[in-house]
Nucleic acid binder design. Structure first.
Length: 464
DNA sequence: TGTTCATGG
DNA sequence: TATCCATGAACA
């Protein structure tokens, strides 16, 4: 470890102890449900394989090689059948120059090739069985799972998790989310609770470069960075924007979502306009984006002289220029300065007292490290303090784990209000007293299950 | 062991 | 200019 200050050393020392207690606590799993569901999935997997074997795709597969050598899970064989035997133009090529058979690639050919959808369905089932239910059943002990949390594996001084990885359980796909998270139960009389920092990486980034425009976006709730960028990217007035969604995390399908994830976040991680343009252009189609007045977005762009992807790239070149050289000029200057310092010294220092370097880093890594690491350290400090307070007050509520910007707890119902007050106080107030470099407000969202509920049943709480 | 695919922040 | 950080399974 390369902590340059006592404080940084202490954070990881105390963090290791607090996370060890979370590992010791563990999360209760519903064993009968896991075994039953896994069995059900096994039947379904076999049924899907039978269906696949009735397809023409499988016939052609059989002509390509002796039956004993057929492996329906082989990505290499699948690529050969689709893109050589059937002569379909490969939609995506991998980094090493092979045919890609990722979900993205296969869903493009699936409408024309019966059987391909079965492969995707089978993959989903296999992922659920091997990684999730298989992992849970292998690692649980007496119905309690004890996932590990590491502080020594990630080059940005974030954490990681294993056996099982508590930090990548399905969430975005509603079916997978429900099926897998239903396996995790609250203890009797308890509720599962998840407390997230909102936009912590953007906030830490603003604390690094102190860009006045970004600080305003963060401090003034009437402004919205993603809305403004979306308006630039798609020639939209405020009235053209799809209605603001109350729950911004669930704004999938909105123009704002495309601006946020296709452009702004991609730019923060170091992407460039050409790639952003391709991704956003595809989103317009796959999400059927329309303006508030119901005009298709391709039609709307055509009115502004943007008729194809090449036109859109040209337009986005200008949007990118405004983004970095007008809107976030000071952020831009910080990037230049920080990278130059890395080239001069060979390391980059984090606000929390860690030093990264000693090995060659790419430019994007140098500029991401001071943001990703300290963002997690805000969470870790909060977790340590929460752990201290829960134990000092002899409370029955337990910390179960952590997901980069979120703490997961198993909270006794009678302690619920107290635990929430405690978390809010630590994460939004005490944290800012401890680290003076945090010059923006901290916000959290809280989700909780019913008493005796499970992790698929979290509901967002209204905080006052 | 390296590559590709899936999952998350 | 050329998207950051991970874990795990399966195949080659």
């Amino acid at each position: 470890m390369r902590a340059t200050t006592q404080e940084a050393y202490q954070l990881f020392h105390d963090g290791a102890l607090a996370l060890a207690r979370a590992e010791y606590n563990g999360i209760k799993v519903d064993l009968p449900y896991c075994k039953e569901t896994d069995k059900h999935l096994q039947n379904r997997e076999e049924a899907m394989q039978s269906l696949l074997k009735e397809s023409e795709l499988y016939q052609l597969w059989g002509k390509m090689m002796p039956p004993t050598e057929i492996n329906l899970d082989s990505t290499k064989q699948l690529g050969k059948v689709l893109f050589e035997v059937m002569e379909i133009p490969p939609p995506i090529i991998t980094d090493k120059g092979n045919y890609s058979v990722s979900e993205e690639a296969l869903s493009i050919v699936a409408p024309e090739v019966p059987g391909v959808q079965h492969i995707l369905d089978i993959r989903g089932i296999q992922k659920a069985r091997s990684t999730y239910f298989g992992g849970i059943l292998k690692e649980q002990f007496d119905g309690v799972l004890h996932p590990f949390f590491h502080l020594n594996k990630v080059k940005t001084y974030r954490s990681s998790s294993s056996r099982i990885n508590f930090q990548n359980l399905p969430k975005r796909d509603p079916f997978m989310m429900n099926m897998i998270r239903k396996a995790f139960s609250a203890r009797p009389g308890h509720r599962l609770v998840e407390v997230d920092f909102g936009g912590i990486e953007v906030k830490v980034s603003a604390c690094c470069h102190k860009d006045p425009n970004m600080l305003k976006y963060i401090r003034d709730p009437s402004t919205d960075m993603h809305r403004d960028v979306s308006q630039d990217a798609f020639f939209l007035s405020l009235e053209d924007m799809t209605p603001d969604n109350e729950d911004q995390e669930k704004d999938i399908g909105n123009i704002r979502y495309v601006g946020k994830n296709g452009f702004t976040f991609a730019q923060f991680y170091g992407d460039y306009f050409g790639n952003c343009a391709r991704i956003m252009w595809n989103y317009i189609d796959s999400m059927n984006l329309v303006t508030k007045q119901g005009v298709g977005l391709y039609d709307h762009l055509a009115k502004h002289g943007v008729h194809n992807l090449e036109d859109f790239k040209d337009h986005l070149r200008g949007v990118e220029d405004i983004f970095w050289n007008v809107r976030f000029k000071k952020y831009s200057a910080w990037k230049k300065k920080t990278f130059k310092k890395y080239l001069d010294t060979g390391y980059v220092d984090l606000l929390t007292g860690f030093r990264c370097g000693g090995i060659p880093l790419e430019k994007n890594q140098v500029l991401n490290t001071p943001i990703q690491g300290p963002a997690f350290h805000c969470l870790l400090w909060s977790l340590i303090e929460t752990d201290k307070e829960l134990r000092r007050n002899n409370m029955k509520s337990l910390i179960l784990g952590q997901i980069h910007d979120a703490i997961v707890l198993d909270v006794l119902d009678s302690e619920f209000d107290n635990v929430l007050d405690l978390l809010l106080n630590i994460m939004c107030k005490r944290l800012r007293k401890y680290w003076k470099w945090i010059i923006v407000p901290m916000e959290v969202t809280v989700e909780a299950s019913p008493v005796d509920g499970n992790w698929s049943e979290l509901k967002k709480l209204k905080l006052n």
